[in-house]
């Protein structure tokens, strides 16, 4: 009987698990988003580069043919969507849940002017924004896996009117991810070493550098897709083929 009572009195291990899952899911999502942005930014190297990279990611090399397996995009989409929902659900525990709590938080920020507290508020806001905008984006891509390419993506920006969503999402994601990675490091003391304070300063600097880096290439890519999308507005829906394939295609048509 004694054991039974001991077990019943024990505190649940759930809070520990949830804390860890929140951090790990955040880590996976941040790494995914950074990779995602780097892949998307291949448009800066030209349409052909982006087209080729999309082909590689879709496993075109496996078929050797014209199209790969866009289902890969769907599978990744479902996976990321699941982690995204999990992360959001767990992180929700930390949100200010009443007007009173929110007011205290705002007052505290106003009087203390404390950098890391302000950063947390940024994460809370950007997280909230992503609940909606992130879901829209992931859903569209998961259900239209084959529509990734220089023209298809650019058309989505301009002709499908997703550019306002992408513009806000870019800032939300990049701020949330870099701040989150910084917080992850100090939260678990991963790189603390002998001098945790010096480490924190370096981490903060790395965070700021990464935010600027990702925002710059993000905005540049945004501009590139906008430009292509605007030029391609009249032929929206048409797919991009690099000049070499273009030649083959037109030869096929003539025969």
């Amino acid at each position: 009987m004694k054991n039974f009572f001991d077990a019943a009195d024990k505190k649940s291990r759930k809070p520990a698990r949830l804390d860890l899952i929140q951090s790990l899911s955040g880590l996976v999502l941040a790494l995914f988003m950074w990779t995602h942005l780097l892949l998307v930014s291949s448009i800066l190297l030209g349409k052909k580069a982006m087209y080729t990279l999309t082909g590689i990611m879709e496993g075109k090399f496996l078929t050797g043919g014209d199209h790969g397996f866009p289902i890969i995009v769907t599978i990744i989409g479902i996976g990321i969507f699941s982690i995204f929902i999990l992360h959001a659900g767990i992180a929700l525990r930390k949100f200010p849940i009443s007007w009173r709590q929110h007011k205290i938080l705002r007052d505290q920020m106003k009087t203390m002017k404390h950098g890391d507290t302000n950063l947390w508020y940024t994460q809370f806001l950007t997280g909230f924004i992503m609940f909606f905008l992130g879901s829209v984006h992931i859903y569209i891509l998961t259900t239209h896996p084959a529509e990734i390419g220089p023209y298809a993506s650019a058309d989505r920006f301009v002709s499908d009117w997703l550019w306002p969503l992408y513009f806000i999402l870019l800032f939300a994601v990049e701020l949330h991810a870099t701040i989150g990675m910084y917080r992850l490091a100090v939260k678990w003391g991963i790189f603390d070493g002998k001098n945790p304070r010096a480490t924190r300063k370096r981490l903060k600097m790395a965070k700021n550098t990464l935010t600027v880096f990702f925002l710059v290439i993000g905005l540049a890519s945004f501009a590139a897709y906008m430009k292509i999308g605007l030029e391609h507005r009249d032929r929206a829906g048409e797919r991009y083929h690099p000049p070499s394939e273009q030649a083959e295609l037109s030869r096929g048509e003539h025969q």
Binding site: K11, P15, K187
Partner: peptide, 25 residues
């Protein structure tokens, strides 16, 4: 295990959101 009984929940160490107001002040 004993320490977990004291700080092992969201009122304890898992409630800390690492805002670091403590550290900085």
């Amino acid at each position: 295990e004993d320490w977990y009984e004291i700080i092992g929940n969201d009122d304890g160490v898992f409630g800390c959101m690492t805002l670091l107001g403590c550290e900085d002040n």
